Amino acid sequence: MGRYYAPLSGLIPRDLNEPVRVGEYAFIARKWDVSIFDWAELQSKHRLHISYATGDMLLKGCNMELAVSASSTNDVRDKMLAFHVVMYARGFHPFSVQLLSNYSINDYAGICSRKSSHGLELLPEEMRTGITSATACVEVWPAPYISGAAFRKEGLARTVTPDLLARVVGDVDRWNILRSKYSVCHFLERVLMSSPVVADTGQSLLHVWTGLESIFPKVQSEVSFRLALYLAQLQSPLGDRREFFQKAKKSYGDRSKVAHGGELKTKEGIDPWMETWSILTQTLRAMLDRQKIPMEEELIQELLTAADASKC
């Protein structure tokens, strides 16, 4: 079991003065810049599977890393995907994994300067002790999957705090159980990662709805009504079913408009893409809360039972 480090772009660390570790995951705030000379040193003396110029560019927008204990790069990909899904279910803004390495940014920053006494003198004192090309081999891979956002959306969380990690890791365990039971979870992961990077908001909204529709594959008629009804009932442990039903039904109307060549428009300050994205992420939250994905028949039975109970 090794430790892998994934620099993240789009999240803001707060109060992460020291690494925070829970189980197989850790939050690490970035402390130092990696100079172009550090990258050149990594290119010539270490194992880079991307060009050093690309690495330099990718790190510019990263303020923190996610560290993951894993047996291989494939294993770390699965564990990072689960983390990503849970963060979206918790209302976080789409963020991106920029690359993957076997050492932290904070470890290989200054690696070029540390190879000589003259270079050491130019570094801040805290950077003078660390790995060098003689003591370590840094390996850097491309990001294990595409993620991020092609456009900025306000109203979604960005700030990462130490206490968040324990809650996320608990949800990761629950998501992994769902993933092992329901194959649709793997498709939902792909939809979640790919939808925000589609530059056209209408096409992105359509893609989000492919994920929502995949949860209820038997729905072939009265689609907008039935999908909205099932999604609202799925939410019943968490909130107002009536409000969620109306939101889902309206969002499906936006989906139909785009599918037939129409254009999305913001009305009364409501962003159609954000509404649709929130339906998907709140649906994931409901799945995690229920620890299952109910069949259509089960949701209908819940509705009938609730209706009967209201008469008593």
Rank of each mutant, 00 (worst) to 15 (best):
E41K: 15
E65C: 06
I28M: 05
M64S: 07
A109S: 11
L66K: 02
D78E: 15
H93S: 15
V86M: 10
R77I: 01
A40Y: 05
K31P: 02
A89G: 15
R90D: 09
F92N: 06
N63Y: 05
A26V: 07
L81F: 03
E41V: 13
V20H: 05
R90Q: 13
L66I: 14
M87V: 10
V22Q: 14
N17Y: 14
A40C: 00
V97W: 00
G55W: 00
M87L: 15
S44D: 12
M57I: 08
Q98A: 13
E65L: 08
L58Q: 13
F27C: 08
A26W: 03
Y25W: 11
V86K: 04
H93M: 11
Q43Y: 04
E18R: 15
S69C: 01
A70C: 09
V20L: 08
S71D: 15
N74V: 05
K31L: 01
Q98H: 07
S96Q: 11
M64I: 04
W32G: 00
G91Y: 12
D38V: 08
I36F: 11
N102E: 06
L42M: 12
K45A: 13
L42Q: 07
E24P: 00
P94E: 05
S44N: 14
I105E: 02
V34M: 06
M87A: 14
M57C: 11
S101F: 00
V34Q: 07
C62L: 03
A40G: 02
L58G: 12
V97M: 09
Q43C: 04
C62V: 05
G91S: 09
L48F: 07
P19C: 12
N63A: 15
Y103I: 01
R90H: 11
C62Y: 00
D56Q: 13
V20A: 03
L99W: 01
F27W: 15
Y103V: 06
I36D: 07
M80S: 11
Q43H: 09
E41T: 15
A26H: 02
A53S: 13
Y88E: 07
G61F: 00
L100H: 03
S44M: 13
T54V: 07
F37L: 14
Y108R: 06
P19I: 14
L81H: 06
L100I: 06
K45C: 08
A67N: 04
L16P: 03
V86F: 10
L81V: 14
V76H: 03
T54A: 13
S96E: 11
T73G: 05
R30E: 07
V68L: 09
V97Y: 02
L48H: 06
A67Y: 01
D56F: 13
Y108D: 04
L16G: 04
I105K: 01
S69V: 10
